[in-house]
């Protein structure tokens, strides 16, 4: 059970001189149950890449396999794929349209042709998973706050019970608390259900705390792919392409260079604190 990308290339703008090579020879294996951060700045191809994973875009060259089957084979059921690989777009609250929250979340399962009962059960479960209180269920989605709307939109995808959940910049435009709440909720969801989660972001600091694997995209290619510590070790190269490792990475390097015996590969505040305390003999 996995997603495999085999030599995937994507060119848009077709035959004109304006053709853009958005993805260049992408080879990736995404096994079940991983928590992945997909990092890159605007225009690096990360959004294009995730739209390939659920078949919204078709590679110009190369193939994509989901559970061993080519998703662009003529007899492949794309609709089913989209329910298994759930994609939450950037600013997903812009896709809400129903008169109340609950009906909106029902939209996905209803499209799958499920019974009314099953649809409602799933919608209810999904809204619980994103931590929305019952009192909001029958309100218009447009009366909710920004963070709540976003939860509803995420629930709309969760209600299809995907095996893989992809979130494109789920924290864009939220305030710091709103951001932490959404990310914590996603981490909790990941822990409880064990589904694969791909978090698309341009912030290393946001994802470092949560993910086990980081894929860095730059100009349509995969630049780094590995555990956060391995990836952040290349902080100088990352900086050159306009990305930066978390601030703590820099601090730990500087401390080490000025003679403190700390491990320089700490990526989160907690790790950094423990390292420094150990060096100062306070532990």
């Amino acid at each position: 059970m996995s997603i495999i990308l085999d030599h995937v290339n994507y060119v848009y703008g077709g035959d004109t001189a304006l053709a853009v090579h958005a993805l260049k020879d992408i080879n990736l294996v995404i096994p079940d149950g991983q928590f992945i951060g997909l990092i890159g700045h605007t225009g690096s191809g990360k959004s294009t890449l995730v739209q390939h994973l659920n078949g919204l875009l078709k590679p110009t060259e190369g193939s994509i396999y989901y559970n061993g089957e080519d998703i662009h084979a003529s007899d492949y059921d794309k609709k089913k794929l989209r329910s298994k690989v759930g994609l939450v777009f950037q600013y997903p609250e812009h896709q809400l349209f129903e008169i109340d929250v609950f009906s909106d979340v029902c939209f996905g399962p209803k499209n799958l042709g499920l019974s009314r009962k099953e649809t409602e059960l799933r919608a209810y479960a999904a809204l619980k998973q994103v931590g929305l209180q019952d009192e909001y269920f029958y309100q218009s989605p447009f009366d909710l706050s920004g963070g709540q709307k976003r939860r509803v939109a995420i629930a709309g995808v969760l209600a299809m019970k995907p095996d893989v959940l992809i979130l494109d910049e789920p924290t864009a435009g939220l305030d710091p608390r709103g951001r932490d709440e959404i990310l914590d909720q996603i981490a909790k969801l990941k822990e409880e259900t064990g589904i694969t989660v791909i978090l698309v972001s341009h912030s290393m600091e946001d994802v470092a705390k949560y993910v086990e694997r980081i894929i860095v995209m730059n100009r349509g290619s995969v630049m780094y792919d590995g555990a956060p510590k391995e990836v952040f070790a290349h902080y100088r190269e990352l900086e050159e392409v306009g990305l930066a490792a978390p601030q703590v990475t820099y601090i730990m390097r500087a401390l080490r260079e000025s003679g403190m015996p700390v491990a320089a590969d700490a990526t989160t505040i907690g790790e950094a604190r423990d390292e420094i305390l150990k060096a100062l003999g306070k532990e």
Binding site: D175, P176, R177, E205, Q247, V248, A272, R273
Partner: peptide, 18 residues
């Protein structure tokens, strides 16, 4: 509902630990 930059937060955590 706000946060502080990572540096400030790390300094704060360290201070809290003495």
């Amino acid at each position: 509902r706000l946060d502080v930059p990572q540096v400030t937060l790390l300094a704060y955590e360290l201070k809290k630990s003495g």
